[in-house]
Amino acid sequence: MSESTKALSAQGVSIWLDDISRERLVSGNLRELIDSSDVVGVTSNPSIFQKALEQGAAYDEQTKDLVVRGVQLEEAVRLLTSYDIRWACDVLKPVYESSQGKDGRVSIEVDPRIAHETDKTTAEAKALWWLVDRPNVMIKIPATLAGLPAITAATAAGISVNVTLIFSIERYLKVMEAYLAGLEQARTNGVDLSTVRSVASFFVSRVDTEIDKRLDKLGTDEAKAVRGKAGIANARLAYEAFDQVFAGERWQSLAADGANKQRPLWASTGVKDPNYDDTMYVTQLVAPDTVNTMPEATLNALVDHGTITGQTANTGYDEARAVFADLSALGIEIDEVTELLETEGVQKFMDSWSILLEGVKGQLDAVK
């Protein structure tokens, strides 16, 4: 195991790989990353699946069977992707068991086209939970306004949820509220709260990408001084909110009945600007009870030259607020930025889903 990943894990950060493919599973590469790089979970999205389907012949046999059976396109996508998720869950089962369910998790996303439809999102979360049929799966639900009651409903049904596409502190507070409400309903429903887990995926690099673009247009010394600081500042204030909510009386009541905290998950941790340290969204976001889901390039960079100096995300809250005060003085308001990023994020997920459908259709047609 690498020293950097070992040090990160020792600080209470769970390393999840933001990638999955049939080839990775067939070759045993996921198992190798568990052993060598302390990977204890996996996340997926439509873009990741589309990339996987384009590479090699690992999906050919299942694709042929789907054609023979006359399976329709959208169902074929679900069967192809859930097969990988189920397999990855089995690979990670020892981690799931040794961590008492905290890690060893694999996430699969609801259809992003229904991100603004509560009932459909809830129904699909239940369907995916049933389809994968593994206790260590997590169902990804976007943190849209319509997604919030779906998070509550899924949690109340005993489903473990990965809440995705969180950009703002305000929305994050509502996500935590949705989770707590779901746990309270689950308790009323007789669900064993200790079996329910959740993470809240807070996107990091996209905040810097959008804000840096605006700062570059200004081009002043004051603007240059805050480049690359907003994403980490935003995440640190999210951790502050997490710490406060999961220390309150409402949480203590649930914890007494076996409930688990909804851990912050740092997503979008690949560094987009080549001028920045390529491990900054890892080394500067170290705190207990967190998850960092990394693209393989970021994981490799961490293994190669990342340096963990201790806890860095559960401090500097006043400095983080000062970053947003400086941005506001420059005419850049974080609330407007995060609202835009959520809108764009949902659309990007929808576009990725459409591309995935087209890719699977092409593979199915090629077999006919």
Rank of each mutant, 00 (worst) to 15 (best):
A233H: 08
K229M: 14
G228W: 13
R236V: 12
N234F: 08
E240K: 10
W251F: 02
K224Q: 13
Q262P: 01
S268W: 04
T269E: 09
N260Y: 08
A259Y: 03
A225F: 11
I232A: 14
K261G: 05
K261P: 01
G248F: 07
S268A: 07
Q262W: 00
T220F: 13
G231H: 06
V226K: 10
K261C: 02
A238T: 06
A235S: 12
T220R: 09
V245N: 01
A267T: 01
K229Q: 15
G248S: 10
R263D: 01
W266L: 01
N234S: 14
D221C: 10
A247H: 06
A247M: 09
D257A: 05
W251Q: 01
Q262Y: 01
R227V: 11
A238H: 05
A259F: 07
N234T: 11
P264E: 00
W251L: 06
Q252E: 09
L218C: 12
W266P: 00
V271T: 15
K272P: 04
A235Q: 10
E249C: 02
R250E: 08
F242I: 00
A235F: 13
A255R: 07
K272F: 04
A230L: 12
A255K: 11
K229A: 15
G270Q: 06
Q252Y: 01
I232Q: 11
R263H: 02
A223C: 13
T269G: 06
D273A: 07
F242Y: 12
R227S: 13
K229Y: 12
A233K: 05
Y239D: 01
D243M: 08
V245Q: 05
K224P: 11
V245S: 01
A233V: 10
R263P: 00
N234E: 07
R236P: 06
G248K: 05
L254D: 08
F242P: 00
K224N: 15
E222K: 15
K229H: 14
S268T: 06
D243T: 13
A255T: 04
K272S: 03
D273Q: 08
W251C: 01
S253P: 01
V226H: 13
W266S: 01
D243C: 10
V245M: 02
W251V: 03
K217N: 13
A223N: 13
R263Q: 04
A233D: 08
A230M: 11
A233I: 05
G219Y: 14
A267Q: 01
G270A: 04
A233P: 05
N234Q: 03
G270P: 00
G258W: 12
A259K: 04
T269S: 06
G228T: 15
D216F: 08
G231A: 15
G270N: 00
